[in-house]
C-alpha cells in the first residue's frame, strides 16, 4: 500500500500553483483522501503540487452576506460554532463532527472534500443545499460554478484537471433560520449511509424557505428540491415533515445499493432521516 513515484512541488503563490496544474500536477491539500487513494492505487499522479504553503488560501471571511472559505481552511475550523456567523456556523458545526475524527479533521479541508466529491461527503451535500459557488482558477482564468452544476457523479466534478479550487462561497443564512444535521452510519468510523442537512425559515407560522441537502442518496450530493416544494407555504408539522421525507426519498433520491444498504432500505432511511432532520430544524 505505497504510493507510486511522483515529483513534488510546493508552490508559494496561486499563480505558481496554477502553473503546476497546467503542467499536469495534482493538488495536495489536506492529503487525507489523496494519500488514501495513492495507497489504494487509485491515484497515480506524476506530479503533486502541495498547496499548503500558498499564503491566503487559508482565509475564512464573511462579508456582505457571503462566507468565503479558502482552499486551505481545515475541517477542524468549523468545529467552533463562532467561526462562521449565524445559523450557517451552527449548521457547519453540527455537520463537521460527523466527518472522520479529530486528527483527520486537523488536516483535511472543506475545499478538498468538494474537489474529491465522495457521494457521502457531508460538505458536498451542504454545498448544493446552500447554493454555494465554487471558484476555480487556471492559467486560462477564473470561473465560478454553482454547486448544483458542479457535481457530476462519484468523484466526478465540472472542475477541469488543471483548475485549482481556490474558494467556496456560501450565502449566509438569515438569523431566524432553523438548522439541523443528522447522519445515519454503522459505526463511529464509517462514512454516512445517509446524511441530511436542513435549513428552514418559518415566518408567520408558515415555512417560507427550505433547503435540504442529501449525502449518499445518489451517485452525487443532492438538494431535495421536491421535498422542499412540499414544505413551502406549509405549517411546520410532523405530517408535513413526513410528507417531505417521502418526497425526498421517492422523487429526489436515486440511491445506489451498497453492502448493508440496498435501495429499499436506503429509501426508507432517507424518508425517516429527512423528517427527523426537519423536525429538529424547526421544533414543532
Amino acid at each position: 500500500m505505497k504510493p507510486s513515484a511522483f515529483d513534488y512541488v510546493a508552490p508559494r503563490t496561486v499563480a505558481d500553483a496554477v502553473d503546476a496544474l497546467a503542467a499536469g500536477a495534482q493538488v495536495l491539500a489536506g492529503g487525507q483522501s489523496l494519500l488514501l487513494d495513492m495507497h489504494l492505487q487509485r491515484a497515480h499522479p506524476a506530479l503533486v503540487a502541495d498547496i499548503n504553503h500558498v499564503p491566503g488560501l487559508d482565509e475564512l471571511t464573511a462579508s456582505d452576506g457571503t462566507l468565503t472559505v479558502g482552499a486551505l481552511v481545515r475541517h477542524q475550523t468549523f468545529e467552533s460554532p463562532g467561526a462562521v456567523p449565524g445559523p450557517l456556523g451552527d449548521l457547519f458545526a453540527r455537520a463537521v463532527v460527523t466527518i472522520a475524527h479529530p486528527p483527520i479533521r486537523a488536516r483535511g479541508t472543506m475545499a478538498g472534500s468538494l474537489a474529491w466529491a465522495h457521494p457521502a461527503s457531508e460538505w458536498c451535500a451542504l454545498a448544493v443545499a446552500l447554493d454555494a459557488v465554487v471558484e476555480l482558477r487556471s492559467t486560462r482564468g477564473t470561473r465560478e460554478i454553482p454547486a448544483g452544476e458542479y457535481f457530476l457523479g462519484p468523484f466526478q466534478t465540472a472542475r477541469e484537471p488543471d483548475e485549482l479550487l481556490t474558494a467556496v462561497r456560501y450565502p449566509l443564512l438569515a438569523p431566524d433560520t432553523g438548522v439541523a444535521f443528522t447522519e445515519h452510519r454503522r459505526t463511529g468510523f464509517s462514512f454516512a449511509q445517509v446524511a441530511v442537512g436542513a435549513a428552514l425559515t418559518v415566518r408567520d407560522g408558515v415555512i417560507t424557505e427550505a433547503r435540504i441537502g442529501l449525502a449518499n442518496c445518489a451517485d452525487r450530493p443532492l438538494r431535495a428540491h421536491a421535498a422542499e416544494r412540499t414544505l413551502i407555504g406549509a405549517e411546520p408539522s410532523s405530517p408535513a415533515f413526513t410528507m417531505a421525507g417521502e418526497a425526498a426519498s421517492t422523487e429526489d433520491a436515486a440511491p445506489v445499493p451498497e453492502p448493508y444498504a440496498d435501495v429499499d432500505y436506503r429509501r426508507h432511511v432517507i424518508a425517516v432521516l429527512v423528517a427527523r432532520t426537519l423536525r429538529e430544524a424547526a421544533p414543532v
Binding site: 495536495l28 502541495d50 479529530p102 483527520i104 488536516r107
Partner: peptide, 13 residues
C-alpha cells in the same frame, strides 16, 4: 504540535 496520521502525510511535507 498537532496530532496527525503519519501514514497520510509525506515526509517532504
Amino acid at each position: 504540535g498537532e496530532a496527525v496520521r503519519s501514514c497520510l502525510m509525506l515526509a517532504v511535507q
